[in-house]
């Protein structure tokens, strides 16, 4: 499979006040098209920072990120935004939706931002398709405050998928959900990857979530500490992952 995302020697230095914090200390990785990769690690290990750099939400202090053949770290703010719009999708832990817009409008938001009309032709079909994928049929006109937390996160997944991005980034998407709702969301992410070839990068500290991945990158102290290859599996048992993590002392 071709490589869709590459990172080379990424560092990120934060300087809040007089002190400085090395959030990333030289991270390199490759992610193949259609792959489901999880970033795991304890709090402060740098996994969310890495996801932000990979997704073009922030610029590295040094190093390069190459997404779909374009070097994000060399792009202007506007160019990075446009690349993000066309090639990535994001799902965050909190506040993924615009409260003023209903489900269909929230999902069609990237098209609106790009100046396209989501109510016509193929875009309309695409929206209906992802609504179907995340099992929200019948709730198209609901506003976010009329949905459960799990449904809201599924809307966020649908919005992230609707543009058919090269890669979908999810930062602790189940962190705010109960166990069963979390599993439903992970099923939806996995289905998009398995059935449609969607590349997914998931940040999580939950081994149950990480067990959906083909490959788990374990981070610690701003570096990739280890890589656990689980392979594509219909069942997402956590045993092999937990065993390996235990070997690593995590």
């Amino acid at each position: 499979m071709p490589t869709i995302l590459q990172a080379r020697d990424l560092t990120k230095l934060y300087q809040p006040g007089m002190t400085s914090v090395d959030a990333l200390r030289g991270v390199s990785l490759d992610i193949q098209e259609g792959e489901f990769v999880a970033l795991m690690g304890p709090s402060g290990s740098g996994k969310s920072t890495l996801l932000q750099l990979l997704g073009g939400l922030d610029q590295p202090s040094s190093g390069d990120v190459i997404l779909a053949g374009q070097q994000i770290s060399r792009l202007s703010e506007d160019q990075a935004t446009r690349l993000r719009r066309s090639e990535t999708g994001f799902v965050f832990q909190f506040f993924n939706l615009i409260p003023l817009l209903d489900v269909t409008e929230n999902i069609g938001l990237p098209f609106r931002i790009a100046g396209q009309n989501p109510n016509k032709g193929e875009l309309k079909t695409r929206i209906a398709d992802v609504i179907d994928l995340v099992d929200l049929k019948g709730k198209e006109r609901h506003k976010p405050d009329q949905l459960s937390a799990g449904e809201q996160q599924r809307v966020a997944v649908a919005r992230a998928l609707v543009t058919r991005p090269a890669i979908l980034f999810a930062d602790e998407p189940t962190g705010n959900l109960d166990y069963h709702t979390g599993l439903e969301l992970l099923d939806a992410l996995w289905a998009s990857c398995h059935d449609r070839g969607q590349t997914v990068v998931l940040v999580t500290h939950d081994s149950k979530a990480a067990a959906y991945a083909d490959r788990v990158l374990v981070m610690n102290d701003g570096r990739i500490h280890d890589q656990i290859v689980l392979g594509r599996r219909e069942t997402h048992e956590t045993g092999p992952l937990i065993a390996r993590l235990a070997q690593l002392g995590l």
Binding site: L57, F92, F95, I113
Partner: peptide, 16 residues
């Protein structure tokens, strides 16, 4: 601020 952050993450430019 969160709402605007989502719009920015979804691809809205600063100008937009």
């Amino acid at each position: 601020v969160r709402e605007l952050g989502i719009l920015r993450a979804t691809g809205m430019t600063g100008r937009q």
